[in-house]
Amino acid sequence: MTDVTQAAAETQVRPGRLSEFWHYFRENRGAVFGLWVFAAFVAVAIFADFIAPYNPTEQFRDHLLQPPFWEEGGSTAYLLGTDAVGRDMLSRLLHGARYSFYVGVVVVLISATGGILIGLFAGFAPKWVDTLIMRVMDIILAFPSLLLALVLVAILGPSLTNAMIAIAIVSQPHYVRLTRASVMSELSKDYVTASRTTGAGLARLMFITVLPNCLSPIIVQGALSFSSAILDAAALGFLGMGAQPPTPEWGTMLAEAREFILRAWWVVTFPGLAILITVLAINLMGDGLRDALDPKLKRS
């Protein structure tokens, strides 16, 4: 019975919290702009098959390295030109959004779930377990993330899946540290003591009492690691350790385009621009999220 009333009370509070969040988020114009661009990116990722004019791996051998339509020699049949084996750049870019989105979602899901669980556990565990966990995280953080990801991929074998696993492992410690730090500061508060004295079990304390109050910084970190996952996956692809050709992944496309850099600027420019715009939009959104969720800045 009490559970039901409590649940009802929560559902009444939720919309209020969300609209409060939106109120603050909306104030940051850059963030709203980022949100729209991100929405467009997600839409492209989902509907790439329908939007793209051609199959991303189809080769038009009569149209090798054709420039974009506004340049001399370009045609509207291939709006952004074609690459060295005659594949339509626009179609490849649109399909590339799919891979980047996939990488972002999977990496954030794996690293956030793992990181939050470990962080929560560390916050609640006895001191020596906590120390042990944090030392392990320090060790992972001692390696430059891209280097560790590269080495992990070298062990697992180069592929997009392995690149995602590697990036998830490398970005996990940030979630652990954040979660643990917020758990630590929440644990000393009265409401936790109250919940404990009323007989809440450990699981309830961890997931229902404490965790929801630690989410703000984790959400912000989620946005940031989404964008850095896209960047890292593209970097690995660029180094030949991520998605393999002919996959239209943006970083892999750049790697293939390198040798034509001085002959055909479009094969180099567009994939990078796509990465930059996507990452920029997510970072803008992340800044807005941070401002809207951080109570310290709200007051000022």
């Binding site: 660029f238 390198r258 180099v268 994939p271 990078g272 621009l273 930059l276 970072n283």
Partner: peptide, 22 residues
């Protein structure tokens, strides 16, 4: 600064090579 922070530097390098060297 935000653009710089979001920059895929491997692409940035290629762009600079195209413009400055090419």
């Amino acid at each position: 600064a935000l653009v710089g922070y979001s920059m895929p530097i491997f692409w940035w390098a290629l762009l600079l090579i195209i413009v400055m060297s090419g």
